[in-house]
Computed example of a mutant assay.
Amino acid sequence: MRIFSGIQPTGRKHLGNYIGAIRQYVEGQDRGDPAIFCIVDLHAITVSYEPAVLRERVYDTTAILLAAGLDPERCILFRQGDVHEHTELCWLLSSVTAIGELNRMHQFRDKSLAQRELVSSGLLFYPVLQAADVLAYKAQEVPVGEDQREHLELMRDVARRFNSRFAPEDGEILVVPEHRIPEVGARIMDLQEPTRKMSTTGGTPEGTVYVLDEPKAIEKKFKRAVTDSGNEIVKDPEKPGVSNLIDILAAARGTTPAAVEEEMRTARGYGDLKVAAADAVRDMLSPVRERYEELRGDEEALETALETGAEKARAIAAQTLAEVRDAMGVGPRR
């Protein structure tokens, strides 16, 4: 099975990124044939940014992924901007993508409201480039968080529409991918505002747990986590704060929310749940933070890993692009 997923370049990865995406990458690198992971610097330029900061954040993200357990010998890890096939395929796929579909994307509507000076066309085309990222590698599986489900459905529609229009009757050119969303922890919420997703940009500083947080910072944030009325520790739509803590604890331990509820039947109150969640998250993230410190200082090694991965990625993407160009009548006949 071929696996592909992309991740935004920022060193400020939070707990939701780790549980919903990064940990899935590590678990998938031995299932994938190959498993391909991309740091999407081209997506990052659709909003306001500083060029020098972007380059630093690519290295930050690379170091975090390697610290979490990604091994360039067991997967393909590369920087999106190094493989030009992504942008050409994006343009070709735009011919089978409806503008109305892009206008209806929730992330476009939300992010465009925040761009007061300029709403870039790149923000609108973000899902088309995202489709090209995945379809270039004919990936069957895409590990994503719950918030990317809408974009995944769009790329599935794009692949079907392309095949219907350009593929031979007895086959397909582009693979229609399936999502892989974790059963536990697919949507980690802000500890201070548990009705909102944990976020680097839109969350609260006290409610966002970062992968690189020191242990005492993690403990402090969980200690101050907002809970709910009553004292029963159960998952319930009416108890978003407690439900979020149960999900986090279950995900960090690799167990189920039901098992956490059973364990917490003898708890003295929400304080015990907060302590247990903090301990589990600290134990899960501390090795990553320590390994990151070792890796981040060697930018030459990080760059070498990305360049090597790009060569491997380019060999796959170039073949798909050639097939797409030929089917669409672009350029000389193969």
Rank of each mutant, 00 (worst) to 15 (best):
G145I: 01
G145F: 02
G145C: 11
E146T: 12
E146M: 06
D147Q: 13
D147E: 14
D147I: 04
Q148I: 01
R149H: 15
R149S: 12
R149G: 08
E150G: 09
E150Q: 12
H151L: 10
E153C: 10
L154R: 04
L154K: 14
M155Q: 08
R156A: 15
R156I: 13
R156E: 07
R156C: 13
R156G: 07
R156F: 11
D157F: 04
D157V: 01
D157Y: 06
D157T: 11
D157R: 08
V158N: 04
V158W: 10
A159D: 01
A159V: 11
R160E: 12
R160I: 07
R161E: 08
N163Y: 03
S164D: 11
R165W: 03
R165A: 14
R165V: 15
F166Y: 11
F166A: 08
A167D: 02
A167P: 06
A167T: 00
D170M: 13
D170I: 08
G171S: 15
E172R: 01
E172F: 13
E172I: 05
I173E: 08
I173L: 10
I173G: 00
L174W: 08
V175L: 07
P177V: 09
E178I: 15
E178S: 11
H179E: 11
R180P: 06
R180D: 08
R180Y: 13
R180A: 09
I181P: 03
I181N: 08
P182Y: 14
P182Q: 10
P182I: 10
P182G: 05
E183L: 13
V184P: 05
V184G: 09
V184R: 03
G185V: 09
A186T: 02
R187H: 11
M189A: 07
D190Q: 06
E193C: 09
T195P: 10
R196S: 14
R196G: 10
R196Y: 04
M198V: 12
M198C: 11
S199I: 09
S199W: 09
T200Y: 09
T201E: 12
G202N: 02
G203N: 01
G203F: 00
T204I: 00
T204F: 00
P205N: 03
P205A: 05
E206A: 15
E206S: 13
G207W: 00
T208F: 02
T208E: 00
V209R: 00
V209P: 00
Y210T: 01
Y210E: 01
Y210V: 02
V211K: 03
V211N: 09
L212E: 07
D213K: 00
D213R: 06
E214M: 13
E214L: 03
E214N: 05
P215R: 04
E219S: 15
K220Y: 10
K221Q: 07
F222V: 11
F222R: 03
K223Q: 12
K223M: 15
K223N: 10
A225R: 00
V226R: 06
V226D: 00
T227C: 10
D228W: 12
D228G: 07
S229E: 12
S229L: 11
S229A: 14
G230H: 08
N231D: 09
I233Y: 13
I233G: 05
I233Q: 02
K235T: 11
K235I: 13
D236C: 15
D236I: 14
P240A: 13
P240W: 10
P240S: 09
G241M: 04
G241Q: 04
V242G: 01
V242M: 03
V242D: 01
